[in-house]
Design a protein around this nucleic acid. Structure first.
Length: 105
DNA sequence: GAAATGACCACGA
DNA sequence: GTCGTGGCCATTT
């Protein structure tokens, strides 16, 4: 209900092997400046929906996600690697390559 | 109805 | 490049 639907729809649009930041999702969803709601929505949503929440990361290029979520902590990293996303040495994602650009221009 | 909360971002140092 | 603070605003008690 409400704004979340828009966020979910946007997150679903993320292609496999790509990642998007909260700010980007918010912008695409027409919620510029309300990035917090994006994180809220993803935290609230469950696996029952086909929301690839693990593809959504913060602006720092790192995974947020509270532990005790889907099953483990590093599991998130594994899921992304399964999609072809690799992590840097410090555990960050190479946004320069994997950042979802959702059709620029 | 009002207060507290929050998987964040932008800006300044 | 990182770290700390303020602020946006809907959802939840």
């Amino acid at each position: 209900m409400s704004q979340y639907d828009r966020i979910y729809a946007t997150v679903r649009q993320i292609p496999q092997g790509k990642v998007a930041t909260y700010g980007q999702i918010a912008d695409l969803a027409g919620l510029y400046g309300k990035a917090r709601l994006v994180g809220y929505a993803l935290f609230r949503v469950d696996l029952q929906d086909d929301i690839p929440w693990h593809r959504v990361i913060n602006a720092k290029g790192e995974i947020s996600y509270s532990f005790q979520r889907q099953g483990g902590d590093y599991l998130q990293k594994v899921l992304l690697e399964e999609e072809g996303i690799k992590f840097k040495s410090n555990g960050k994602i190479d946004l320069n390559k994997y950042r979802w650009q959702h059709q620029i221009q």
